[in-house]
Design a binder for these strands. Structure first.
Lengths: 349, 349
DNA sequence: AGCACCGCAGCAAGCGCTTTCTATCCGGAA
DNA sequence: TTCCGGATAGAAAGCGCTTGCTGCGGTGCT
């Protein structure tokens, strides 16, 4: 029914071994033979059996990419960049790699499940993107998995994630969330703000914690008391930003600035502010994080911290494919750039 | 080195066959035996070898999802919904399916390449999302591939795509782009607009053509001449919307409304209008398409056509997993809902 | 008491490919 | 002319798993 290597071999009048070698191009085959084989492949419309090949060669050409939310451009941009780098040449049979994008939805269980599934597929590489969950049991479970993957020859790269334990052999490209958060808040303080609300992401996530720490560091550095009532936790989505803003306003109506965990949350905050009859930045300044494409289209355009998502993703992809040297020590920090735009201004006097 | 089925069998004192059956749960195994095997699996930390299993069983648990642009929430939302449906129960070994999200970038070649790669992996199902490319050679090449996939037992579902030739056996969930486009433009006409600009997507794509046809049908139905100078083609991104708007304004400064190919393009159009000193909708009304999450946060909020992306994706996923009956005839049309918001209003008199 | 059967476990034959090792053919060196 | 080595091609042994078929006790029936 389906065409196999043997069929091609028969038609080209060579042995299956030769066909395999032509297809993998890693063994000398006479040009004339090669051509004959290629013609047979073409005529028969032969497609290699991936699983069989993976089994025999003990490697596959799948690359796993774990993301927290595939509908979020933050991850989409990274995933796209990674994928564009892993497809290229540099491997077996045409060098085609298949990216497996796994949507964990932020759930620790699913993260682990996907890691197992990838291990089961004998993935060539695995790239974990976005913040990690901070839960001792889970962190060590993930570390154990990563170690196992590495043992099985799977290259592991973290993109936008804090480093894993060194013995996992995982390369980490970390975003400087702390530094970005700090610069952002300092920008606001420089503008004269003293009463700033902060809408944080979900607790137990490194990204959330680091950005918040940066914010607090800025406050502390300028002698501003950090009233815990000015911080609200929520999800990384618009709705959450909307509700958190209302809550913040209820608690402290005379806030002059709101810093959001990310751009999406900031957008929700803007909506809540507008619905409350407040002007941006006239009454309240708003700042986001990430600089997703839509942020510049907000009205007013969002002041935020630009993270080089695509660049980081591309680099992670290259490292995963061994087409670029890992950074020394296996860890590199990727900085963010403060983008000052219309949504922040001096507070009303 | 790595643990195999045989190791588990040895430890549980049963034959490999029994272990396999316990793991696949499709053959009667005595409870006590099952338990013993499961314990061994656990103690040995055994992970099934996917490729080997796929080879022997002639099926894999990979599901391919083709998208045009993974960084675009339009696709991200569908992909996420699909993935949440295919992970569930209903299959072998824990029912875990691995979603392979492939980013074609809108390139015909890559689309074909990915289809081949998926065929090579013997994917359990393949779901193609978004509009198709309208190029005779490519369409028939894709149809041929789909046919081959179907022959190999891969279920094929199109989500948000026009139906493929009937002999491909592909189930299609099509968006009513034409109807949505028509209603959107009729809304504008109803408001009193007579000079409407249209920013279309890339040529040779079904989505582009259908939306444009709907627009034109509305114009025709109301006796409005369709001046070709009022239509500009571009990509489905913000930048393109920005530039196209400037071009439209140059050609015809007194347009009173601009209909964009999608929300992202509409956002770019809004930015261009603002930069040109025009008010929305005071001077020019703007409408989008899709109703992506950020559209409601635009200022003013975008009038658009809401496409039930998540619902359609979920349904496609279920159909692909045979957990839902395909629609009669294998084709279903999914309608869009007109969302009238602040970006459209009556034209200045 | 004898027989058919059922429930459960094992045997063994692959699934389609890769790869080591071996065989062959050839040109040129001796 | 004989012999040796390089360049190619083939034979065959798996890779780790699934599954059709066989085998073996024990239950229920007559």
């Amino acid at each position: 029914m389906t065409v196999t290597l043997a069929d091609v071999a028969a038609r080209a009048q060579v042995s299956p071994a030769t066909v395999s070698r032509v297809l993998n191009g890693n063994y000398p085959v006479a040009a004339s033979t090669r051509e004959r084989v290629l013609r047979a492949v073409d005529e028969l419309d032969y497609v290699l059996n991936g699983p069989a090949s993976a089994l025999a060669a003990a490697t596959s050409d799948l690359v796993g990419i774990l993301v927290n939310d595939i509908a979020d451009p933050f991850f989409g941009i990274m995933a796209g960049a990674i994928q564009s780098e892993i497809g290229g040449p540099g491997g077996r049979a045409g060098g085609e790699r298949l990216a497996v994008v796994c949507n964990t939805g932020g759930s620790p269980e699913r993260e682990l499940t996907y890691l197992t599934l990838l291990q089961r597929q004998r993935a060539a590489a695995v790239i974990l993107t976005g913040g990690a969950i901070e839960n001792e049991a889970h962190v060590s479970a993930v570390a154990a998995k990563l170690r196992k993957l590495a043992d099985a020859g799977t290259r592991v790269v973290l993109c936008g994630r804090p480093p894993a334990p060194a013995d996992t052999d995982a390369v980490a490209l970390t975003f400087d969330n702390r530094g970005g958060g700090r610069r952002l808040t300092e920008h606001l303080i420089g503008l004269g703000h003293r009463r700033l609300g902060y809408i944080a992401g979900p607790e137990e996530r490194t990204t959330t914690r680091h950005r918040l720490e940066g914010h607090r560091a800025a406050l502390a550095a300028h002698g501003i008391e950090d009233d815990p009532r000015r911080t609200v936790h929520g999800r990384y989505d618009r709705r959450s930003g909307y509700e958190a803003t209302l809550e913040l306003l209820r608690r402290e109506p005379d806030l002059t600035a709101i810093v959001a965990a990310n751009d999406t949350v900031a957008l929700g905050a803007c909506a809540a502010l507008r619905d409350s009859g407040l002007r941006i930045p006239g009454d309240v300044s708003v700042a986001g994080f990430d600089d997703l494409p839509f942020s510049i289209d907000a009205v007013p355009a969002l002041t935020t911290v630009r993270l080089p998502l695509a660049e980081a993703g591309a680099r992670a992809g290259r490292i995963a494919m061994s087409r670029e040297e890992p950074p020394p020590g296996g860890i590199a920090t990727v900085g963010g750039e403060l983008m000052v735009r219309g949504s922040t201004g001096a507070p009303r006097p």
